[in-house]
Design a protein around this nucleic acid. Sequence first.
DNA 1: TCAAAAGTGTTCCGAATACACCCATGA
DNA 2: TCATGGGTGTATTCGGAACACTTTTGA
Lengths: 231, 231
Amino acid sequence: MDYMSELDKYPKPAMAVDIVIFTIIDDILKVLLIKRGRNPYAGKWCLPGGFVLIAESLEDAALRELREETNVKDVYLGQLYTFGNPKRDSRGRVISVAYYALANHEKISPKITGDESIKNVEWHNVNKLPELGFDHKEILEYALKRLRYKLEYSVVGLELLPEKFTLTQLQKMYEIILNEPIDKRNFRKKISTMNFLEDTEEMKKGSHRPAKLYTFRKMPASKFKKIKLEK
Amino acid sequence: MDYMSELDKYPKPAMAVDIVIFTIIDDILKVLLIKRGRNPYAGKWCLPGGFVLIAESLEDAALRELREETNVKDVYLGQLYTFGNPKRDSRGRVISVAYYALANHEKISPKITGDESIKNVEWHNVNKLPELGFDHKEILEYALKRLRYKLEYSVVGLELLPEKFTLTQLQKMYEIILNEPIDKRNFRKKISTMNFLEDTEEMKKGSHRPAKLYTFRKMPASKFKKIKLEK
DNA sequence: TCAAAAGTGTTCCGAATACACCCATGA
DNA sequence: TCATGGGTGTATTCGGAACACTTTTGA
C-alpha cells in the first residue's frame, strides 16, 4: 500500500455532480431547481446536485441525487461537462461534473420538504429563470444548448411523451424544446425516414379528426437516422 | 467558515487530468505515451497526466502536465469526458478529466528522462498501440473518435502543418487522421467554400509542377462554414 | 355547419458524391 | 521524355426548406 500515499500528497478538491432535469409542463420547457436553505447563496435557486461518495460512480452519484431530491428514476442521463474553476464555490475547491436529463414530470414528485440544505423545489420556465447560485446559470445554458443540439440529430424526448402519442404531440415537443415553429409536412417526412416510430392500431379521439397513435420502436439509437430540423 | 467542514464530511476522491496529444509523423497519426516507472502498471504505456492542484483550473492542470512532461505549449485543448469509475485506479479513487490536443511534433521535445514516475516518453502509432495502463485505451479511443468527428465539421489541424502549406498537404493530413482516402476535387471544392484559407503569393517547388502555398486565415472558428467530408 | 386538428406532395436549392484527364516542373 | 505531384468540371443524387389545401370528427 505504499502508493496509497501518492494520492494523499496534496489537498484534494471536493467532487460534486449537478443535474439539469428538463421537463415540459403546460407547453413550457421547465427545469427543476432547488432553493438553498443555507449559505452560500441561501435563498437562491440552484440545480439539484451534491457530493460524490467515495465508492460511487459519477453517474450513480447523479442518479442518487436525482432520486433523493426529486424521486426521479429511469431517465436519460448524459454527461455534459466538468466545471472546475477554482473560484466557482466560495466554500472551497469544488469540481462539478454536470449531467442532464429529460423527465416526465408526472412520474416525478419533487419533494417540497428536503434535507437541511433544501428549502424548496420547483419547476422553472427556462425562459424566465430567477438568479441562480454558483455557476449554475452557465451550466444550465450549456445543458440547454446541448439538449437542442442533440434533438437535431437524434432521438430525444420519449420520456416526455405518453406511451402512445400522435405526430402532432411529438412535433409540439420538438417545438417547445427548440423554441421555434416547425413545418408539419417536413417534420412528418423526416420522422418517417428516421424510422423510429411504430404504428399502433389505435387512434386518439377528440372533437376533430382522429389521429393515429405511435410508440417509440425499441432499438438501439445507432439504428436511427439522424434528424436535422429546419431553422 | 462553518461551512468549510461541509466539504470535508466525506473522504474525497483524487482528481486527475489525462491528456491525449496527437501528432503526425511520417504520415502516421501518433499519440504521445509515457512508460510508467512504478506500480501500478509499471512498465506499461500510459497517457500523460497527473493530479490537479488545489488552486488550479482543470485546463491549467492539463496544460501544466503537458508542459512538464512534453514541453508543449499553445495547443488546441478540448475537454473530452470525465472518467469516474471507482475501480479505474487500483491506488484508490481517482477521477480523471480527459483532454485532447493536436500538436506539431517538431515544436515538441518530449523529455526522455522524466520524474520518478516516468521512465520513457514516445510517440505511438494509433493503429498499433501497445497495451495501455488504467482505462487509457478507452480514453484514447474516445479521443480519436472525437477528433475525427470534429474534423468533419470544423477547422482542426493547423497545429500539424507548417505556416505555409499546399492543398495536397492539407488533404493528406485529413486522410491520415480520418484513415481513409478523400477525393481531391471534392476536397478542394469544399475547402474553398469554407473560406478559411488565405492564398499566399508563394509556390512550393519540387521535381514536379509547383504548388500554391496557403495559410490559415485568422478569424474566429464560428465564421467558417462547416465541412462534411465524404466517406 | 362549424371548429379543430389530421393528413398529405411538389418544387426548388444547395451540398455531397462519383468520376478522369491535362499541366508544369526537375531530373 | 519521364516521373511526380498539381490542378481542374460536370452530372447525379439526396436531403433540407418553402409552401396550402382537403379530410374527418364531435359538438
